[in-house]
């Protein structure tokens, strides 16, 4: 009876608060997807997981803090100023993270690639880069010190209602920016010369080099694309949640999971995986046993395992060697 009541109560909460859970799920899912793209792109071209990618995201968040406080101070922006600041924040945070991602590639991966190092060396190097960035941020900005950017629009601002459920500006911005940046990345990879280069390197780097593709440049640009999306995600995340040196690790795990769920190496799979994990995490909150929110993570990873049992290469299938 208690067990049945628990599930019925959960479904009742979903029924009454469906749009609220849906909106927060899409918001989180958009951020996961934006970060997951970086994981999947790098996996495509290098065949490795860039474990420092979460910290690349974190750097975007800190960039947002300094940018917004530098412009606004304690003021709250509104109207067109908000639009300008959102665009500027995405551009600056994306650029900072792209720069950091490039630095990680140059320092942590390129020397190993030139020496044909084993994959294990890349893994350790990636973890080292991750710890370096996290510790540096902790020392500079304070361990565990959650810092918020200035308000580029009033916190909790409602943009519109679905029924009686308020949909917040941050939720709309996350979805719109996430979608736009994903579509741009998808177009670049599918339809441009650079994209062809990325796909060629992913498929067979030696042959693509013989065909005239500049491997180093292609890999660097891949890190820049992934870093830009992660930085923009860092900016948007910080607006809602603040940023702390460990934020990259927290979000990175979810984004990596999203990439695997969708099919690692598959750009659209990363986006799909991100959205699904965001939505699943949100809708599972009413079903947390004894109110313990950690159950949402247990549910999420159970689903991941079940999907991988049925489809070991993820929902849309792994496209290692054929990125996007």
């Amino acid at each position: 009876m208690g067990f049945a009541h628990f599930w019925l109560s959960g479904f009742d909460q979903i029924r009454t608060g469906f749009w609220a859970y849906f909106a927060v799920g899409l918001e989180n899912g958009s951020l996961y997807a934006m970060i997951a793209v970086g994981y999947t792109l790098v996996y495509g071209v290098l065949g490795l997981i860039n474990f420092a990618h979460g910290e690349v995201f974190m750097c975007g968040g800190f960039a947002a803090v300094f940018l917004t406080h530098g412009i606004l101070g304690d003021r709250v922006a509104n109207g067109w100023e908000s639009v300008f600041l959102i665009l500027a924040g995405i551009a600056i945070a994306g650029s900072v993270s792209a720069l950091v991602a490039t630095g990680v590639e140059q320092v942590a991966y390129r020397p190993l690639r030139r020496r044909n190092a084993p994959k294990l060396a890349y893994l350790i190097s990636a973890i080292g880069a991750s710890y370096f960035l996290q510790t540096l941020a902790g020392k500079e900005f304070g361990y565990g010190q959650n810092i918020f950017p200035a308000q580029v629009f009033p916190a909790g601002q409602t943009m519109f209602f679905i029924g009686k459920t308020p949909i917040h500006t941050i939720q709309v911005v996350c979805l719109v920016v996430g979608t736009a940046m994903f579509v741009a990345a998808d177009r670049i990879v599918r339809s441009t010369r650079l994209g062809r280069g990325i796909r060629a390197v992913a498929q067979d780097s030696e042959t693509s080099a013989l065909m005239g593709v500049n491997i180093d440049r292609t890999i660097t640009l891949t890190f820049i694309i992934g870093g830009s999306l992660a930085g923009a995600a860092g900016f948007l995340y910080a607006l809602q949640n603040g940023i702390v040196q460990s934020s990259g690790t927290e979000l990175g795990i979810y984004a990596f999971t999203a990439a695997v769920l969708g099919g690692i190496g598959n750009l659209r799979g990363a986006a799909l995986g991100g959205l699904l994990i965001g939505l699943f995490g949100s809708f599972s909150v009413p079903f947390a046993f004894e109110g313990n929110i950690s159950w949402t993570e247990i549910y999420t990873f159970i689903i991941l395992v079940l999907v991988l049992i049925v489809r070991p290469t993820g929902i849309l299938g792994e496209k290692s060697g054929r990125t996007a």
């Binding site: 909460q13 608060g17 609220a20 859970y21 927060v24 799920g25 918001e27 989180n28 951020l31 361990y143 565990g144 959650n146 995340y237 809602q240 949640n241 603040g242 702390v244 460990s246 934020s247 927290e250 979000l251 979810y254 995490g281 949100s282 909150v285 009413p286 947390a288 004894e290 109110g291 313990n292 929110i293 950690s294 949402t296 993570e297």
Partner: peptide, 24 residues
């Protein structure tokens, strides 16, 4: 009663979970 892992005291929680808890 509800519980949610802390973030800064070694609990391994994440800020996104606080956001969904707040919605709930």
């Amino acid at each position: 009663t509800k519980s949610i892992a802390n973030i800064n005291e070694g609990g391994g929680g994440n800020a996104g979970a606080y956001s969904t808890l707040a919605t709930s």
